[in-house]
Design a protein around this nucleic acid. Structure first.
Lengths: 196, 196, 196, 196
DNA sequence: ACCGACGGGACCTCCCGTTGTT
DNA sequence: AACAACGGGAGGTCCCGTCGGT
């Protein structure tokens, strides 16, 4: 990896945490300067604007999330086990220092709602992929006879994600992981009901 | 209502919409000036700071929400019917122009997470009340024998709210109410299972 | 005159000198702050942007110029005397401390050529008025029989102004008024030739 | 021509156009980088500063101008024919794409007036040479009896140049060559009057 | 009670020039 | 000789809050 790529990655990592914690407007270029140890010139050589940094940082956050998510259910074969494994993984999420700011998709979705169309599009894409992932697992489960065939996979995936995100939001709001745990508990029960 | 109180209410209403749409940092005093038709001095006569306005605006948003929510299930007696009535009401929420910016509690919870402790506390209090409302309905349902006694009302209330908020977030993200509808559909099924 | 108008006029006066001396890009907001004794907030309360200040400053410069110009030939009746009186006035122009930066129309015309369309339009309008003034004097002279009827007044007015401005430019370049004086001398001869 | 000289010439040519169009402050190093296809380091290897580039670019512009000017009147022997030939050449000047930004001496004279002493000195030198050229032609004309002996050659040269430059400025301002043509028409008449 | 001028600072962006590297 | 990362500062704009005036 060249020096430039290294620095760029360094900026993205630092910005990723900042934007996830403080939002797009809340994180200033001065914050990014302080977090990276670089000066304005050094940063603007790699990115044309704060927007570009925010998008790269969001994509980085999402990529990291997805990587970890796929790792979480990798060991499981059964569709329901797979989904439950992801729930288990979410249960630990807020404890990790790296993701303590909450789910970047959730944060960005709210943050960019009415103010930042480009970021919102990124959040939409990330959500698309997440929905597709869950839908795909559910469909495979139906194909294998692990899940009742009459399930609407899109609705179910939406429900799962919505509940997870809502739980993350509540736990973040209170600074207490129990709210997410409650929610995940119900989702596990829900998943176990899906068997044919 | 005196003229002063009238003006103050006028400011709060205008600010309430702005802060809910654009967030605390995203809504400027200039925006509030434009929305109210008042000048700086006219606003700062009623509030000491932007923070104070934001808090008053949030409280206004929440009070309005609560009023509508209570109105929604007023006609129902049965605990489950009451909760389903609230879900029905949420289904219409995003269509209302006044609440098109989404749930203020959700928005504020995310917005103030790591930046604005006072607002966060307000969001916590509002969430407390919401949780207590749902918990209360569930408990009354248990007392009346409408709901199975072994239900953990706090967990259940958390689950319901988390799912609703997650659904709101997704529908806001996509600008499409179907995601919330999917989620609410599952919650209705969930509620109907609670009978003893 | 209200306090606001007073301050605005003060800003315009200070900016007028700065922009005429240093050009649009060369004069910074910091310069204007220093020249006015105001802070950024105090300035931006009266103008939306640097552009707006520059345009107001240019208009001020031109208005002042026109006022002085009309004053210069006011005493004369004969068309040629009028025009010669304006030349006499130009001869003193560069000595005045207020206009030491040269003709604002000339400066702005060159400065805004390829960079600032709005300013360029202002310069065009100012030049239009100047041309029309000279043309008008010439036409009145023809009507009164003071000037030979076959004169093309537009060409003549153009020639006069072009030569004056060129002379101003050269004198400014060398910091020596003789170049303008040479040019004005020739123009006087030219004007005296116009009699029928 | 060595590779280094080649690159330097390439930079100068690109910068010459940029500075003439946008002025010293208006043309940035980034613009020069884009125009040359070189990076910062590649440019700063040949020049110590932006100032140095601007001066070299101006000198290049002037040299080119002078070369073309001398070529224009080369075929003529008679002093007045020579000068008229230069006027004819000026008439075509603004149509040439290379010089569409106007006369570099004029542009630089105005641009550097109160901000860039070194450039101003260059403009002065260029103007000196131009004046001397016209003066020399006039003097030769007097010596040869083509021009009345009582002519003040310096005044006359100044008048010619001032008028030309003023005409260029006006045509540039309006984006219309007629203003320069009017002025040159009068100068031709003036020149034809000089015969003894 | 409301207006509006103003202070002073933070914001993002772009600037020119240097430095190490290939 | 050319690239490209980087420093550090200045650029214009917008911000929130204060204060005198009406």
């Amino acid at each position: 990896m060249s020096k430039a790529q290294n620095t760029k990655a360094h900026i993205i990592q630092a910005a990723a945490r900042l934007f996830n914690q403080q939002g797009f407007a809340g994180a200033s270029m001065a914050d990014i300067m302080a977090a990276t140890g670089l000066q304005k010139g050094g940063i603007y050589n790699h990115f044309k604007s704060k927007d570009e940094i925010a998008i790269a940082a969001f994509d980085f956050n999402v990529a990291q999330l997805q990587r970890k998510l796929r790792l979480a259910f990798k060991g499981q074969r059964h569709a329901i086990d797979r989904l439950i494994a992801t729930l288990d993984w979410y249960e630990q999420l807020l404890d990790e220092p790296e993701m303590q700011a909450g789910c970047p998709i959730l944060n960005t979705a709210i943050d960019s709602d009415d103010t930042h169309p480009a970021l919102r599009q990124c959040a939409q894409r990330a959500m698309d992929q997440w929905l597709e992932l869950f839908q795909h697992i559910l469909e495979r489960g139906i194909q294998r006879g692990e899940i009742a065939a009459n399930l609407d996979t899109k609705e179910s995936a939406t429900f799962l994600i919505a509940s997870i995100e809502g739980g993350v939001m509540m736990s973040k709001l209170y600074g207490d992981t129990q709210y997410l745990k409650f929610t995940l508990g119900y989702l596990r029960k829900y998943l176990r009901q899906l068997t044919p």
